[in-house]
């Protein structure tokens, strides 16, 4: 049995905390335009996109932007395994009396009743509600997250020194293997880097 010294998880360039620190690459728009667009929707809009297209990452960045603008954002997160209840959402909103915008990741995983209650509650109190979801329909779409190989390359440029970035052919192959899901590509790269000697 060959023993390999695994790279420490904290040093892995694809560890979650590293990915969260990379800047977000907007396609066909600027931050200014996106924030204007959201404002025109009274900050009640949706970010849509397929699995691993960067919806959550964009929401993270929006959080920082809103916070810097003094808009007091609060966040909530739901997925298949952790669907949020109305009580939890209400607690999030009431625990932060200064909140002006709720950033909700995974709105499509809320129960229908929970979604209507949240929509009504935030509308009545004029609280912004920016959500991520796979399909349009819940709120007007403000941004559609799409992936391409250039986006993947740009992310890798942030995470790796130039000489360590895999060549375009192998990246393209990896990208297609994971059905253009960048999150899954980055997870695979995590495993590949984990066994590099450090």
């Amino acid at each position: 049995m060959t023993l390999v010294s695994a790279m420490k998880a904290r040093d892995n360039p694809f560890a979650i905390h590293r990915l969260q620190q990379t800047p977000y690459h907007l396609a066909d728009t600027t931050w200014c335009d996106l924030l204007d667009k959201l404002e025109s929707f009274n900050n009640r809009a949706a970010v849509i996109g397929q699995h691993g297209s960067g919806k959550t990452t964009l929401l993270n960045k929006l959080y920082s932007r809103f916070k810097a603008m003094g808009r007091c954002p609060v966040t909530a997160f739901a997925n298949e395994d952790t669907p949020l209840t109305w009580r939890q959402l209400k607690q999030t909103l009431t625990a932060n009396p200064d909140r002006q915008i709720l950033l909700l990741d995974g709105a499509c995983h809320l129960g229908r009743l929970t979604w209507y209650r949240l929509k009504r509650y935030t509308h009545k109190r004029q609280i912004g509600l920016i959500i991520t979801t796979h399909n349009p329909g819940l709120l007007p779409t403000a941004y559609h997250c799409r992936t391409d190989i250039t986006l993947l390359q740009n992310i890798l440029k942030e995470l790796l020194p130039p000489h360590e970035i895999p060549n375009e052919t192998s990246l393209e192959k990896l990208y297609q293997q994971h059905n253009q899901n960048i999150r899954e590509v980055l997870r695979t790269l995590y495993d590949q880097w984990a066994y590099q000697k450090k």
Partner: peptide, 17 residues
């Protein structure tokens, strides 16, 4: 208003922290 010293551990890696 407040000053606090925390002793804590946290995780980093492939999973959520």
């Amino acid at each position: 208003k407040s000053v606090t010293l925390n002793l804590l551990w946290y995780t980093q890696g492939k999973g959520t922290e």
